[in-house]
Write a protein that binds this DNA or RNA. Structure first.
Lengths: 244, 244
DNA sequence: TCAATAGTGTCTGTAAGACAGTATTGT
DNA sequence: ACAATACTGTCTTACAGACACTATTGA
């Protein structure tokens, strides 16, 4: 029990445990995947769960999230994208006691994951549909649903789709990121025109990549400096994101 | 220290305190206000702060937020709008020890506040600019900035602006809600056409209200069933919301 | 009558969506 | 030659923004 001796007492607060849980998205072979672990301890032993763990007493929430991310995937701080999602605090969400969990969402390129050595043998990327249909531990199903909806919405008005790709990428590859998230095939010709005409979204490298199958060589692009889109790339469903 | 006797121990988790803090917005006389309290205890005694308090061991985070909202304003659960904003967990954000705060944002109509009796004499609605310029306790300045940006963005693509008004309202009143948040005068004629042509945004009552000054009687509307807007009402600045 | 408020009508520029057409590649 | 991929061009429709104009009210 911490006593900081500053003229006031702090011994009578309700004792909580605080954890972080991560929804780590990546795209493997045009399909969206989420990192899951199999729990080796009670409670929910043997069940699928999101990676996460207790926040240390001397680290911030973001440090805890990045630490867990590094432990499970091996990627460093500069890779990809991470942001706080929401905090879950139902009274009985953890049978061990009162645990509040700060959920985070991370976007990673899959080729980064291949080079980064992960020693977590119990962790695996599963297709998002399989994760949604599985019975996860705790309230992790809810967290995945919330993260997915938030991620889908953010792709519309940010340039974060590029974080799923390497340093260099082609427009068809970028389009497949959107399609993986939205589950719909978008009109590529209009997509390409929109992306290239948005200032700061992508910049051409001038050279082309190897042809895909028997086709024209696609132009190779890099990320631009823009982070938000004035004119969003809307989902083909034409329905706006449900916002909570 | 809770021991639930389920075959595993839970005594070695780091001890945290969890609080909720509320950014309660309302519009008074066309200006945006935020509820602030003056702290009567250490730390930061005498300083302005956001209303909030410790989460009880047997209540959810949302219950704690709604309890604090009711304590400070006297409004019930069905009034206005409340949503979770973000959680703040810097290591030394509270000098008493390790406190994680779940921030919430609430939208309330001012006339509701007048009828609801509030017994919190230390609480007062202050103009948002004054709050932003004041040195608040803890990291509450950051929380207010984050809440304001989130609120401004949500007005664009939701119908939440109506939560600042009574059951019945006029289009000029609704326009002034947007102007209060965005700090810019919008083109009212286009605004009125857009609002009335958006299905489910507002429904006309058929009758008119008293004239404002020497002018035409405005038509009285009620809220529609829509919650999100397919075609957002964009800020006149034409800059999209900065998203973090 | 005048000024202030609350709209309605109209015009223009821009962007989205559909889709035809062209260029480049492997088989 | 043909099919597959990666674009470019064009057309239509819709909406945003600007602004002129009308309607109603009090001073």
């Amino acid at each position: 029990m911490p006593s900081h001796d500053k003229g006031y007492d702090f011994t009578d607060y309700p004792p909580f445990a605080v954890t972080v849980d991560l929804v780590i998205f990546t795209i493997i072979d045009t399909r969206l995947h989420v990192l899951c672990v199999t729990r080796g301890e009670k409670p929910y032993k043997g069940r699928l769960a999101l990676p996460g763990g207790f926040v240390h007493i001397d680290e911030t929430l973001e440090q805890a999230a990045r630490r867990e991310l590094a432990e499970e995937t091996g990627v460093g701080d500069t890779m990809g994208h991470i942001e706080q999602l929401q905090t879950y605090g139902a009274v009985k969400r953890d049978p061990r006691g009162r645990v509040v969990s700060v959920a985070w969402m991370a976007f990673l390129a899959h080729d980064v994951l291949l080079t980064a050595g992960t020693d977590a043998a119990d962790a695996a990327f599963l297709p998002v549909d399989d994760v949604l249909n599985a019975r996860l531990a705790f309230d992790h199903n809810t967290i995945v649903v919330d993260a997915l909806e938030r991620a889908r919405a953010k792709l519309e008005y940010t340039t974060l789709a590029t974080t799923f790709l390497g340093e260099e990428f082609t427009l068809p590859e970028l389009a497949r990121v959107y399609e993986a998230f939205w589950g719909a095939s978008l009109h590529f010709s209009n997509f390409a025109r929109k992306v290239t005409s948005t200032p700061g979204f992508v910049t051409s490298t001038g050279h082309t990549a190897a042809p895909v199958g028997r086709g024209k060589r696609p132009v190779v692009y890099r990320r631009g400096h823009a982070t938000t889109l004035t004119h969003p790339i809307l989902r083909p469903s034409h329905e706006p994101g449900r916002v909570t």
